[in-house]
Amino acid sequence: MRRLLTIFFLAFLASCSNKENKSTEQKNAFGNLSYSVDTVVIDPGESFLVIQNEFQLEHFSSLAKDQKTLYLFNNQDYNLAVIDLDQLKLLEFLPFEKEGPNGVGEHVQSVQSLTKDQFLFTNFQSTGIFDSNGKNLTSFKLSNSEFTGLEIDSPFNYQLLMTSDQNWFFSLTGYYNNGAKDLVKLNPKDKTGEFISLPALNIANDFSVMMSDRSILSVPQSILREVNGAHFISNEVTSSVYKFDYQKDSLQLITFQHQLVPNSKTVSVKNEVSGQAEFFAETAKSSSQISFGKMMWDDKRQFYFRLGHKIITSPLEEGSEIENEKNYKSFVYLFVYDADLNLLGETLLENIGRHPRFYFMKDGKLWSYVNLEDELGFAVFSFDF
């Protein structure tokens, strides 16, 4: 059964060339912004749709290019859920194998929808294209020895993406525990590759926090996304982004001059600590500063959108039933840019309790994950400006 719950609430929520964008000091496109929030829930029918957490949604999902279908992989039963976002219902599960000639691997890192019937599965050792029947069509080994031109000895299957024409792979170097990363460009047909330096993102290393025994760490993650035909690489610590046009082999560093928030985190943190209390104090120092989200393209308006947030934490009052936890308050910001990535507007979205963690643009609206009685739901933001 399809359910649509309409709730107007706000409590949820190169050679490298350098381009500096226009300031919003004179005119802010969000000067008269208003917005509403509808909440929708996905109907699973007779099936049970397993949603473990936002991490699963962020790393094991893929939005079809037409924005009509969301694919969600469950790494426990190896089924790929096919969710119709227009009809708001689960259509089917596509079964995949863990091992064997058609196996996607024991530790799947990511899933990418290439076409309606083809999917890219990546694990720590390799990647492969599979059809909707679970058949392995093509496999690729991901190691330096497989590609000429890769002089740096570094793993490079982090956030692996394949272009629509299936002629190129793009990825980031290192593992999740590395802050700053380089872009990797791979040609799977002639087995060539190159590392492309992204020095403006090295600032991420200044905001990593790790226990001296390496038992806990917090690392600002770089994000690689294909948006509006180009690849964007960003990191939460800075508003600056790299835009790589692989068809023109052009890399741009794009910087912004924000008026509402700083252009990056500025207050330094201690990178190595000796105890949990110190660890959480340092990570709180970082999260209380502005963090910039991923770039998103709105086909309807022909604008780029981006979220940002700050998280203010405070200890629970003495005598609370739950000890050693934190009270969180999020400040969520919305930024908009034109097709040339000129900053047009920025605003604080009032009264959103927690910042969105898994979200995307669809039909000119921002969809953000919410858990509705253990069912998959989305808060759908409509912006009027």
Results as ranks from 00 to 15, higher is better:
residue 9 F to V: 12
residue 251 L to R: 07
residue 200 A to L: 12
residue 324 N to C: 13
residue 283 T to V: 04
residue 179 G to D: 11
residue 262 P to Q: 06
residue 143 S to K: 11
residue 266 T to R: 08
residue 327 N to M: 13
residue 341 L to Q: 05
residue 275 G to A: 15
residue 97 E to H: 12
residue 35 Y to A: 07
residue 306 R to Y: 07
residue 133 N to C: 04
residue 141 K to T: 11
residue 50 V to L: 14
residue 117 D to K: 07
residue 29 A to T: 09
residue 150 L to I: 05
residue 149 G to R: 03
residue 10 L to S: 15
residue 138 T to I: 07
residue 191 K to Y: 00
residue 256 F to I: 08
residue 75 N to R: 15
residue 95 P to H: 11
residue 275 G to Y: 14
residue 171 S to D: 11
residue 36 S to C: 08
residue 268 S to M: 02
residue 358 F to L: 06
residue 174 G to W: 13
residue 329 K to Y: 08
residue 112 Q to Y: 04
residue 372 L to W: 05
residue 349 L to H: 04
residue 21 N to K: 08
residue 371 N to G: 05
residue 311 I to W: 00
residue 294 K to G: 01
residue 209 V to E: 07
residue 96 F to K: 06
residue 133 N to Y: 05
residue 107 H to E: 15
residue 285 K to F: 00
residue 276 Q to F: 12
residue 161 L to G: 04
residue 202 N to W: 00
residue 97 E to Y: 09
residue 282 E to P: 01
residue 284 A to G: 15
residue 82 V to T: 09
residue 186 L to E: 02
residue 343 L to K: 12
residue 192 T to G: 01
residue 378 F to S: 03
residue 368 S to R: 01
residue 58 E to M: 15
residue 103 G to M: 10
residue 260 L to Q: 14
residue 79 N to I: 04
residue 143 S to V: 06
residue 361 M to F: 05
residue 329 K to W: 04
residue 108 V to G: 08
residue 372 L to G: 00
residue 219 V to E: 14
residue 60 F to R: 09
residue 138 T to L: 10
residue 288 S to M: 06
residue 142 L to R: 01
residue 199 P to I: 10
residue 150 L to M: 08
residue 117 D to R: 09
residue 117 D to M: 00
residue 183 L to T: 02
residue 383 F to T: 07
residue 188 P to V: 05
residue 38 D to M: 13
residue 265 K to R: 15
residue 31 G to S: 14
residue 196 I to N: 04
residue 271 N to R: 08
residue 335 F to M: 08
residue 203 I to F: 08
residue 360 F to Q: 02
residue 188 P to T: 10
residue 196 I to L: 12
residue 361 M to N: 08
residue 258 H to C: 05
residue 195 F to V: 09
residue 149 G to H: 00
residue 127 T to L: 10
